[in-house]
Write a protein that binds this DNA or RNA. Structure first.
Lengths: 230, 230
DNA sequence: TCCTCCAAACTTGTATACAAGACAGTATAC
DNA sequence: GTATACTGTCTTGTATACAAGTTTGGAGGA
């Protein structure tokens, strides 16, 4: 019988670089279509090519970048058809979550959302970035609360993939109130176990995002491109 | 303006090794819980550690193996709770696919399935492995036929993750006829655009797999363990 | 027999070396 | 001016080297 081993998992350089590059993409420091080499990234971060390669390989698998055989890497261009499809999958998962949540007896995770989303209008957070993050968390928590960790993981991956769009979506102050209102309605429906109403609201909520995202993105992307390069 | 470049993507050693190791896991040459080192794999396949590492990193992200810090790799033990959750996600995706397919006008992909699954009993394939593969393809095609490539990709990943179970499931000859019958019923319902019936059948079909898998697996795994090591 | 300590052998994580091929820019032919 | 061939630089894919830490097995003592 072998000893019960437990080699601690350490912080790896690869993971840090992975996060860094992904963040660079989200923040438009790396723009869709941009090309770059492993050496460039390695030099900028003062590490060797090895962990950079591992990070890039992961990002490729997740659909963020593509390697061109012996010819560098490229940030994947924005593919709106793909984003539409991802929104659809996300909706499917969340509708399933809604159904399950309404069948469950008590869901403390949902109750915990009340203080933020059911706050009075004058007590609402006005910081765009904060609301954007809370928005992601709302959906994330909804799925995770069902107890299906695999579904939550897949949902998380999709959310991250869509983040680059959702960020832009929320830079319009007008959207902020609407976001609050829609989430509040959904949350009330969930707490009241009204599955049909919650589903309808959720569907409309996501469809609205889908519709709005495309036109705004194109404009924002243009302004970002003229501002910064990496 | 830069030239429209296209560096062809070549067959990479990493990919071959990735497939090889995954197959080793599916075929129980690498057993759940087994530990091994990068050097072992590299020596066995007569390559260096580099591509082996890349392959293993991918497999880790997909949930097949885990690295133990400076202490080797381990094939993830079978986690039945996880498999249950994956089955649930797969069901959610396929139910969404069923709904969409029944709303679509014509679906040639489904018609193409008739020759195999609606064959007369005496014309049916009896080869377990072939039926097993056709079973995977049935579900895969169903989802892909909706046109949502992202959903199809996610569904594919889940199917692969569950393959190790489904293989075992089909080693029981009794299951073969049932499989034929259930798929035939689902296909007929789909072709007849009877969404509720198709959904009900599909749900029962997947629930049955879930229920059956656990007890069979444990027995088979035991016999496999006593037969071979890698 | 059982425990402790220690050193040698492994193991991964990261850096570096090298090879085959892609690309860009230039010189040359016309 | 235009097209073409070529050469030097750059890029990834793979192999190897080294560093830091873990595991294992045995010597020694009680």
């Amino acid at each position: 019988m072998t000893k019960p081993t437990q080699a601690a998992s350490r912080e790896k350089l690869t993971d840090r670089i992975y996060q860094q590059i992904k963040q660079d993409i989200f923040d438009f420091r790396l723009l869709p279509g941009d090309r770059f080499s492993e050496n460039e990234v390695a030099a900028r971060l003062a590490v060797s090519r090895t962990p950079v390669r591992e990070a890039l390989t992961q990002l490729q698998r997740e659909g963020y970048v593509t390697v061109l055989f012996r010819s560098g890497w490229q940030v994947n261009p924005l593919d709106f058809e793909q984003f539409d499809q991802l929104y659809d999958v996300r909706l499917v998962l969340e509708l399933a979550a809604v159904k399950k949540l309404c069948e469950m007896e008590s869901v403390p995770e949902l109750t915990a959302l009340k203080s933020f989303w059911l706050a009075k209008p004058d007590e609402r957070a006005q910081d765009e970035q904060r609301v954007c993050q809370a928005d992601e968390e709302f959906h994330q928590i909804m799925v995770a609360a069902t107890g299906n960790r695999e579904m939550a993981r897949i949902h998380q991956d999709i959310t991250e993939r869509l983040r680059i769009l959702r960020r832009i979506d929320f830079t319009q102050p007008r959207r902020l109130d609407i976001t609050y209102e829609e989430h509040a309605q959904i949350l009330r429906a969930l707490l009241g176990k009204r599955v049909d109403r919650a589903s309808t609201l959720l569907k409309a909520h996501i469809e609205a995002s889908k519709a709005e995202v495309r036109k705004i993105t194109i404009h924002r992307l243009h302004t970002a491109r003229t501002r910064s390069r990496v």
